[in-house]
Design a protein around this nucleic acid. Sequence first.
DNA 1: TTGAAAGCGCTAACAA
DNA 2: TTGTTAGCGCTTTCAA
Lengths: 335, 335
Amino acid sequence: MKNVTIKDVANIVGVSYSTVSRALSGSPEISEETRARIVEVCRQMNYTPNTVARAMVKKNTMLLGLILTDINNPFMSELAYYVDRQAHEHGYNILLSNSSKDKDQEREIFELMVGHQVDGIILCPCGPESSEALTQLTKRVPTVFFGENLREIPESYISVDNFRGGEMGTEYLYGLGHRNILYFGKRRNSTTHQLRADGYENACKKLGITPHYFNNTFNSTSIQNGYLMAKQLFSEKPEFTAIFASTDTNALGIMKAAEEAGIRIPEDISLLGFDNIRDASLPRIDLTTIEQPMKLLSSVAMDCLFQKIQNEQSGYSHRILYPNLVERSSCRKID
Amino acid sequence: MKNVTIKDVANIVGVSYSTVSRALSGSPEISEETRARIVEVCRQMNYTPNTVARAMVKKNTMLLGLILTDINNPFMSELAYYVDRQAHEHGYNILLSNSSKDKDQEREIFELMVGHQVDGIILCPCGPESSEALTQLTKRVPTVFFGENLREIPESYISVDNFRGGEMGTEYLYGLGHRNILYFGKRRNSTTHQLRADGYENACKKLGITPHYFNNTFNSTSIQNGYLMAKQLFSEKPEFTAIFASTDTNALGIMKAAEEAGIRIPEDISLLGFDNIRDASLPRIDLTTIEQPMKLLSSVAMDCLFQKIQNEQSGYSHRILYPNLVERSSCRKID
DNA sequence: TTGAAAGCGCTAACAA
DNA sequence: TTGTTAGCGCTTTCAA
């Protein structure tokens, strides 16, 4: 499995190896004739340039790190899809890793990627403190935080306007006639969740209705967690006509618990999600939800990263994108 | 953003830079005292070893390539999850890329990864001919094909027993009392699909029932494709009591079309899937299906790859794992 | 237009 | 136990 090197090619062609390098890098200071000869021999010998050696001298690896909390989360895999595509369009490759929402792992992975000399990193942080914990490391490689609104922190980040999303959802349900809206699953220790809930609270105030919360007791928002919480909720026979779930995964858990409890959606209770993960559009689920425009978010994040890579002095930027309401069939109009 | 090197550390400590290298690589031939001093200075200076430089001399990058057709496919993202986890347990990192089921892209990505000197590759092939198309490249880096049964081809591959899965599903439906079973969505140009359909056909023969097919007219198995096909199917008012869908995504499309056509599942028609993607377990979907045991498949694939990396002479191996039936609520017993 | 040589950051053989 | 040195495969000055 010994690989062919530039020297092997040079030997065969009978030129110095720097000439081969020039031929391959498209340098103008070389005769077309020798270039053609070299290129032909490279083809015959199945020569593939060693990116690692090139990286040593050029000081860039054409590698981009993508740190997710969990690739299995459809929200994240969508991000990975777009990031990969755009990276390749720019000649970059993706080094992927999952932090599993664990701060130590997040840090370890980041260091590993720095060691691998990645040219930039897109990071879906574990939590709001990630940026502080990594403050030494982010100085060493252009980094863009994704998905969490990190407020006034001096790092680049891209996020949807979670506050506005919380408002939008509430206003939508209000418009449908709902006056008793429960906000379900707010998580501690997440700016995203805080902002969504604040948006809800704010809209309630503006609309003159009373906010009600059923908070998340877990530190994550899996379907299973949502299910367990909803089960408890429904056992308490509460009075509301609509649930605004803090995430689609929570909403999915609610659906399951509702089904078991004999509660129909949307006939008995309207259900609104947040994120618009792929599952929300599945048949039978068909969840109305506040969308995070993933394609746009990813594209803005990548643009931001590329800009940082090109101009390392370029400071930081905060980009907050507008959410959309995606109407499906889980919410209904009431009197 | 200039990184600290081993030489900078050596200068500060006042030793040669090979001593620093030894201290860091855990060599025994160094006094504990100097090691402690060096380690301390490294910490202070925020030194991170340059994996790229190390790779140059050690001839391994600790990078594993993972080539998927589409990370957005839940089947693939589950694979990515397990592969990433196991890779990290062994100190490896994942270079990820999507071929989008395009042969040229697949080849290009493979070459790119060879260029990056990955130590091994897990490849979900575009189709049955991928192995031939890449035959020159697979000689240059340990490669394991994943998911497709490549029959007698001299490459390592891991796959579920699709033939047996086809049989199992058919036998299960037969056991439930179904005698008119439609096999839905068989795709051309895929060994996997051929084997599943063959298993179905074989079981039908053994059980003395007549096989019926509704073939896939597309080259992929998205929900949308399944939906379009099922719509056509239902407009033809066919006579059968159960559908055996060639993939879960197809089954999801069938569910949607059935809902629109007023056909209830499982009351009017039983529906059986194949793969057990995450979506199948979602509330309201709750699809009975033949499972590909992803965790096991990934783990076997990684073991196989690590073995090839350790012993490059070790030939190839074909591993076919047994599928499981996952009973949920989309199939019912009939008289 | 081409070649020679230095050097990227590190490891490993050889010397001391 | 430590230092010196060569070299991994490549790019890039500097000379020719």
